[in-house]
Nucleic acid binder design. Structure first.
Length: 576
RNA sequence: UGGGCUGUCGCCAAGGGGUAAGGCACAAGAUUUUGAUUCUUGUAUUCGUGGGUUCAAAUCCCGCCAGCCCAGCCA
């Protein structure tokens, strides 16, 4: 049936037996329970799902939840998953978004065969036929009321609406009028087609909803073929039914639309009509997820574009260095329910650390360099140490790391007057230079401002890494880079875009932007193994975090890294 | 004074009459050439709330409270 489902979604409970007494298996969510029931009762004998974005913007992490839910369900039940553009309103849609959405969905899911990508606009003929059918059944009518009048006639939440004076036009007149709407005989807004349901329904969606409107607008897919376009509530159930979708999964705000969904599918007399099930959206604590807020940040230049690594659009996450696996893991851990909830960003960070810790090489990088001179190491001499690329994954092999008399260490790894429990370098203290020797601080130099410029040490030749002497215990191990052989780089550190002390929005609804959300470090010194790195490559900078080479800003002359996430740390600097 | 939905640990979330899974976060200890990882341990006498039914209720019933969504010719 489907060939596109070729990427494993981890953790989904594929069969009953796996559920027995295995604590690692996730329990099924309520949608899976509903599907099980539908399969048992015989309502459906297979499963088909879809992700139906309107191509009117960029996808963000919230959409990833829907994509992976639909994709995961299809995979779990051996069914089909389609990407379908819900392009029924040409005013807001364009090809650029179709492109970016396609790219994002493919990235999240692994890959997607092109014969699983559809457009709602491909079904416009069928939708038109359905509308004609409703008219013939006396279930739809052409209405001449203005938008303002329709609103007025609709009533309110507590009062029933009243019927349109055009509600009882004859089938013949409606047929004629609707055809003339299609044939470009009326102006935008002059007439609409409405479903004839119940103006007194407590559910506003059932008060004769508009199902077709006139819009003289070029459509990205159908060009100028149509000047009438179906509304979501009418189009969506038909799209699902025509495509063979069994379970139409959408977010909670559509719960009130389900009666209309069922009405459409029944009145249009589809066999085995699809079933709509709603779930709660994903929200993240202290994160901007609203499309219009993201847009504002992009427009006013607060961020660098739709793919600024501080945003949570799919493009941003990808550029920052998140892996699709980490996003999938995150969605798996987050679960699916109907309770409105706000997840911790910490869970996403856990997922990317978890994914990268065994996938990326662990190299040394000094972000804020201070010179370290080993006074008893011979001048003009170099040695090349054998170092494991990832201690926990021996298969990742070894590399050579240059070591010599002059090194760089990170500024935060040396203090003149250390607080208690500081076990890095300070006058008189000995630490291990990771993968090299033990070194004892003998002296230091400062500039006129009191900033440390050079640290002097002596080393113990008997403590070379891998030798018996190296088994001695020291409290501190710090990383370093050879000053003679290293690579320069720019490294960007990111903090939350939102000022967490103030919350996401201020009184006027503007984002409280954290002024320190971006730190650019220009003169970082990396070990020379980095010289072979390519855009998109991910690394652990030992003792710092996980970093990814930015493929947009990296040039032949400048290596630019984005910090994906820092390492966890239980070190809390104490006041002296 | 309408309709729909939801309330289980700081966060996410199982469990749907038999006495509170799991993950994240957090804390403590062990191991450690990353203050990382790994490992162990700890963390809800209680399921929004008040009643009721029952030998037994987070689960069933009734009431209340709180939150979210709905009055586009948007999706």
């Amino acid at each position: 049936m489907s060939t596109e489902v070729n990427d494993k979604i981890n953790g989904a409970a594929d069969d009953e037996s796996a559920n027995d007494g295995n604590a690692d298996v996730l329990s099924k969510n309520f949608i899976e329970h509903e599907i099980d029931k539908d399969l048992e009762s015989g309502r459906f004998d297979h499963v088909q799902t879809r992700f139906p974005p309107e191509p009117n913007g960029y996808l963000h992490i919230g959409h990833a939840k829907s994509i992976l839910l639909n994709y995961g369900i299809a995979k779990e039940y051996g069914g089909t998953f389609n990407l379908r553009f819900d392009d029924t309103n040409p005013m807001k849609e364009n090809e650029e978004y179709v492109k970016s959405i396609t790219e994002d969905v493919k990235w999240i899911v692994g890959d997607l065969d092109k014969d699983h990508i559809f457009y709602a606009s491909d079904y416009f003929d069928q939708m038109y036929e359905c509308a004609v059918k409703l008219i013939k059944k006396g279930k739809a009518y052409v209405c001449d009321l203005s938008p303002e009048q329709i609103k007025e006639y609709r009533g309110t939440l507590t009062e029933p609406g009243k019927e349109s004076p055009y509600r009882n036009r004859s089938v013949e007149e409606n047929l004629d009028l609707f055809e003339r709407m299609k044939n470009d005989e009326f102006k935008d807004g002059e007439k609409v087609l409405r479903a004839k349901i119940d103006m007194a329904s407590p559910n506003l969606n059932m008060r004769d909803p508009v199902i077709y409107r006139i819009a003289h607008m070029h459509h990205h897919n159908t060009g100028d073929k149509w000047c009438i376009y179906p509304m979501y509530d009418f189009a969506h159930p038909i799209e699902d039914a025509v495509e063979g979708v069994t379970h139409s999964l959408c977010t909670l705000e559509f719960e009130d639309h389900r009666p209309l969904y069922d009405w459409v599918v029944n009145e249009c007399e589809f066999e085995n009509p699809p079933r709509q099930i709603e779930f709660a959206k994903l929200y993240l604590k202290n994160v901007v997820t609203g499309k219009r807020y993201i847009k504002k940040l992009v427009m006013d230049g607060t961020v660098d574009g739709w793919d600024d690594p501080r945003l949570v659009t799919i493009a941003s996450l990808r550029r920052r260095g998140y892996t699709p696996e980490s996003i999938r893991k995150f969605m798996e851990l987050s679960g699916i329910s109907k309770a409105n909830s706000t997840s911790d960003y910490a869970m996403l960070e856990y997922c990317i650390r978890e994914d990268l810790k065994s996938k990326s090489p662990r190299y040394m990088a000094v972000l804020d360099p201070v010179k370290l001179i080993i006074t008893n190491y011979p001048e003009n001499e170099m040695e090349y140490l054998d170092v494991e690329n990832n201690r926990d994954v021996p298969e990742m092999g070894m590399r050579k790391v240059a070591f010599g008399r002059e090194l760089y260490i990170d500024r935060e790894d040396f203090m003149i007057e250390p607080p208690k429990k500081y076990f890095r370098l300070y006058p008189g203290n000995e630490v291990r230079l990771m993968n090299a020797y033990f070194v004892k601080c003998t002296d230091y130099e400062c500039d006129d401002n009191g900033n440390v410029t050079t640290v002097y040490c002596t080393y113990d030749p008997d403590t070379k890494s891998g030798m018996p002497g190296a088994e001695r215990k020291v409290k501190g191990t710090i990383h370093w880079v050879s000053a003679a052989e290293c690579v320069d780089a720019t490294v960007r550190l990111y903090e939350n875009l939102v000022d967490e002390s103030k919350g996401v929005y201020d009184e006027e609804g503007n984002v409280n932007v954290n002024p320190h959300s971006l730190t650019v470090l220009k003169d970082c010194k990396l070990e020379s193994a980095f010289s072979e790195a390519r855009p998109g490559d991910r690394f652990q900078f030992v003792r710092h975090g996980f970093f990814c080479i930015d493929d947009k800003d990296t040039t032949e002359d400048e290596l630019v890294f984005n910090r994906i996430v820092s390492l966890k740390s239980s070190y809390k600097p104490e006041k002296k």
